[in-house]
Structures are given as C-alpha cells and as structure tokens.
Amino acid sequence: MDALDVLWRLLAVLLAFLVLPLLVGQAEHKAMAHMQGRVGPMYAGGFHGWAQLVADGVKFAQKEDIVPSGADRRVFQLAPAVALLPYLVVLIVIPVGDGDMVGQVVDAGVFFVLAVMGVGVLGSLMGGWASANKFSLLGGLRTAAQLMAYELPMLLAAASVAMAAGTLSLPGILDAWQWWWLPWQIVGGLVFFTAGLAELQRPPFDAPVADSEIIFGAYTEYTGLRFALFLLAEYAGIVVLSALTAVLFLGGWHGPFADTLGWVWTLLKTAVLAFVVIWLRVSYPRLREDQIQRVAWTVLVPLALFQIALTGVVKVVIQ
C-alpha cells in the first residue's frame, strides 16, 4: 500500500463523509415532509429543492460564531470537533465491497468502530457542560445516561455477530457471512439498530435534545458553523449506524452479482436503513427519560443476551 493509494482511499472516505450525510439530510427533509402530507423544500437549486442543505450550510457559515461569556471557552469551541471527527474515522474501516473496497482493514474492527463512536458522545457532554446553561447541562446529563444505558446492548449485539463469524474484523465478518445468518441474527440486528438510534439521540430516543422540554439540550448555546458541525455529526452518525448495521447484520455487499455490484448492495442496504431511521423519527413520539432507561435495561439487554446464547448454541451445534 503506497502513499498514493492511501491518499486515494482517504480522499474517497472524506468524500463519502461530506456527501452521504447531506444526502441523508436531504432525504429526511423530503421523506419527512411527504410523510406529513407536505412537500418540503422546493426552491433551493431549482429541482425539488435539492440544494437546500447547501443553502443551509452557506447560511450557517455566514452566522456569527458566538461563545457565551460565562462559558468555558476552550471546551465549548472544541466540542463540535470531538462530536464530528469520530464518525469520519469510523468510515475508514467500513467495507463497501468485496476484497479491497475498504479504507483500511482493522483487525479488531467491531471494537474499533464501537469505541470511536462512543468517543463522539463526549462532544455532546463537553458542549453540554461548557455552555454554562441549565438546559445544556440537562441535555448533557441525559446524553450521558442514555449512552451508558445503550452502549451495553449495542456491544453485546455486535459481539454476537463477531462470535458467529469468529473474527472481529469487518471484512472478515462479511467473508464468513451466509444468507441464513439473517434470521439467525435478526434479534441482535434489531437490538443493535435500536441501541444505535438511542446513541445517536435520534427520535424516538431524542430526550437529550428534546426541543419542547430543554430547548435543544447540549446544543442550546451553539450557533453558526459549530452548530452545523453538531448537526452534521448527527447525520454522519446515521450514515455510520446504517452502514454498520448493513455490514454486520444484513450481509453488506452480499447479494446477486456481488462480485461486480457488491458496493451497490452495501450502499442500497445503507440507504434503506437510513430511510428507516427517518421513518421512525416521523412515526413515533419521544420516549420519556425513564422509558428510555427501561427499554434499555429490561428489553434490549435481555434480548441481546438471548441472542448471544442463541449464537453460541447454533455455533456449537453446526461445528
């Protein structure tokens, strides 16, 4: 792997990082609008408002960058970067196609992904504390509580797949993947996806940013580009979560004509899952804080443990 190759891969990952979240955001604008009987943005860019998020970005860039006078300046300014960068790093290890179509093969890929995604939440905590605002603090508290509750089922569900494949590497898991893993790991997949939603603070698990209760949680005091970075982190998180679920539980590039069209399958599965994320946001009301905790500890953790037991039993039986 020479320097040029590395450069190309990093460029491709960066491009995906810059484009895919915007696509998801635009899809959310339009899909959510139509699900609510509206049409969404129609003007920016001419055709059905395709450039709405570009326009939003320009608007955010023009806004004044305000740091509250009572805030902890350094931490406040650092928080958006801490929230956003982990998702960029995670994208490097997600395999898009068979063989070489991955930014970098990491031996303990599953652990790497989950570890780095957990770091991203630190950004919300830093922002929540450093804003010197009670709503931000409440948002930060809820973020931390939610993260601690949902990290465990997510990890257990991912561990189930790793057990089934006998490896922690994402391309390795895909190489071992068979179609019948789909029903076998379906419970784990559901747990993983749900816990991921909660970790991203997406509705219906958006109590940490509940705008009708605590303004906008940890992001209350943010404006301009820094706020845009937090938003971008949320959508990058959707991309990463959808891609990870597709890779771990839906077989990634597996599908008809996988040897030539593998990457299309990965992108397609990711897109469908991203649509489901949007769909869930439109369909369900926000869970209360205690309901969120109850779902994690009394539903997801037992389900994930059951999945691990099932995986172990089947694994032993087929050997």
Binding site: R38, V39, S283
Partner: peptide
C-alpha cells in the same frame, strides 16, 4: 408500532396537501 409506521408510509405515497 406497526400501525404507526403504516400510517406514515401510507401518507408518504399520497399526494401532499401543500398549496403551491
């Protein structure tokens, strides 16, 4: 839960009521 999903999906396939 399924019913909620069905409602939103059905609404999406219908024409929006927006006045242009």
């Amino acid at each position: 839960l399924a019913k909620g999903l069905a409602v939103t999906l059905r609404t999406m396939t219908r024409r929006s009521v927006t006045a242009h």
